[in-house]
C-alpha cells in the first residue's frame, strides 16, 4: 500500500492503495465515483474512458502510480450541471438503452469534439470505434455527436 495525491474533477484527493491499482478501481472503490464503468479490463471496450489532462484515456489498465497529480476528469466532473453539449445531445437523441457504456461514450465523444469541433462521419467512426455499445445505439451516438458539434 502507498499514498497517492490525486487531482480528480478539480479536487485534490488522497488515497491509500496498492501502487498497481488501476485508476478505474481507485475511482470506483476508493473515491466513490462509480460513473466510470468496468467492461473488459483490457482496453478493449471503452466503458472506463476518462480524461487525463483533457485527453481521452482508458482507466482500466492505467496504474495509479502513473497518474500522479495530472488532472483526471470523470463523467461526474465533465460539467457542473450535466449540461456539457455532449450530455445535452445524448438527452436530445435519447441515446441510451441499458446505458452502461454511455459514460465512456460521452467522455470519448467530448474529447473528440475538443480536438475536432466538426468531425466527419469517418472521424467519428475512427474515434469512437474503441467504444462498444452492446445494445447497438451506434446510429444515435453518431447523430448525437453531430448535434453536439453543431450546437
Amino acid at each position: 500500500m502507498a499514498t497517492f495525491n490525486l487531482n480528480i474533477n478539480g479536487k485534490k484527493q488522497q488515497v491509500d492503495v496498492d501502487a498497481d491499482t488501476p485508476l478505474l478501481w481507485v475511482l470506483r472503490d476508493h473515491v466513490n465515483l462509480v460513473g466510470t464503468k468496468y467492461g473488459c479490463g483490457i482496453n478493449q471496450c471503452g466503458a472506463c474512458t476518462v480524461h487525463l489532462n483533457g485527453v481521452a484515456m482508458r482507466s482500466c489498465m492505467l496504474p495509479i502510480s502513473q497518474v500522479g497529480e495530472q488532472a483526471v476528469t470523470t463523467i461526474e466532473g465533465l460539467s457542473e450541471n450535466g449540461d456539457h453539449p455532449v450530455q445535452k445531445a445524448w438527452i436530445e437523441h435519447d441515446v441510451a438503452q441499458c446505458g452502461y457504456c454511455q459514460a465512456g461514450q460521452i467522455m470519448n465523444a467530448a474529447a473528440l469534439l475538443k480536438n475536432s469541433p466538426n468531425p466527419s462521419d469517418e472521424e467519428i467512426e475512427g474515434a469512437m470505434a474503441g467504444n462498444i455499445c452492446r445494445c447497438g445505439t451506434y446510429v444515435r451516438i453518431k447523430a448525437a455527436i453531430k448535434t453536439a458539434a453543431a450546437g
Binding site: 464503468k37 446505458g99 459514460a103
Partner: peptide, 21 residues
C-alpha cells in the same frame, strides 16, 4: 417520451448493480 433515467446515466449516477457501495 425520453428515458426517465437519461440524465442520471449521462452524469454517471450510481444506477447499476456494480455501483452498489
Amino acid at each position: 417520451r425520453k428515458n426517465v433515467d437519461g440524465k442520471k446515466l449521462y452524469t454517471g449516477q450510481p444506477l447499476f448493480g456494480l455501483d452498489i457501495q
